[in-house]
Design a protein around this nucleic acid. Structure first.
Lengths: 132, 132
DNA sequence: CTACATGCAAAAAATTTGCACCACC
DNA sequence: GGTGGTGCAAATTTTTTGCATGTAG
């Protein structure tokens, strides 16, 4: 039993394994396929529910790119990273930025009296192969 | 006739007006309602198509927050701004950051040889009213 | 008179809900 | 034995597509 009254089940474990290994955000569809390839039979409802639960437990993050798809990525403690999304070949690279937040950003947030719990930073553009 | 072979129609104009005035991202639903309040009768299909077209013409941006909704905001040239999303009261504030990108971020992007066309930065947390 | 715009209906896709049943603690 | 997990079907919501018609350039 993990925190928040959730149990460690094969499906839950498998989803975490998949996301941990691939280290990039996957859509529900992709997760479903990946489970299938692992010969783990899971209903899409279950996957939705597990992802929702994993999100609540801060084990995965929901990420959105420039399309209409909801994606999930593993939430690796300490290594907060961002994404470079190539709008041409759709490749997604992670980048980890040397420090968390710019000082000036912190000042703005402080001035707004806003308590940041999470932030997303995504770059859209052309990767090295696509902007030659 | 604007660029990209699009025409200036009442619906298109109204959508831009709405987004220009409100200056925050709206869902398709909200845009539909706003049109209704303006007594402009528009089919949802048309709105979807206009938003897609406006996006292509870089007049609006598609924005995603921490839920499953697609939102659109006016793309105001030069005043690139970001959002503070309160996860409790759902209020969305704009912030404009003093400078575009952190120097160190620029270095990382350069090292990755990635040409940035657009970037999103959203902060999720608690606004001043909600974290008392 | 041609290309874009629109509305309507239907299809497709994504997500949620209700209910029954199972299984772990 | 009670709480969470799962599957299935159905409902709901969101988005897309096809087609007929309208209309501005």
């Amino acid at each position: 039993m993990t925190k928040n009254n959730t149990r460690t089940t094969p499906i839950r474990t498998a989803i975490l394994e998949i996301l941990s290994k691939i280290k990039k955000p996957l859509t529900t569809q992709e997760i479903l396929c990946a489970l299938d390839k692992k010969n783990i039979n899971a209903n899409k409802t279950t996957v939705y529910r597990q992802l929702e639960s994993l999100k609540k437990n801060h084990l995965v993050n929901e990420v959105h790119f420039n399309d209409r798809n909801t994606r999930y990525e593993i939430n690796e403690e300490g290594s907060h990273h961002h994404h470079l999304v190539c709008i041409k070949c759709k490749k997604v690279d992670d980048i980890s930025l040397p420090e968390d937040l710019h000082d000036q950003e912190k000042i703005v947030l402080k001035k707004n009296n806003f308590k940041v719990l999470q932030h997303y930073l995504e770059f859209f553009g052309l990767c090295k192969n696509c902007h030659k």
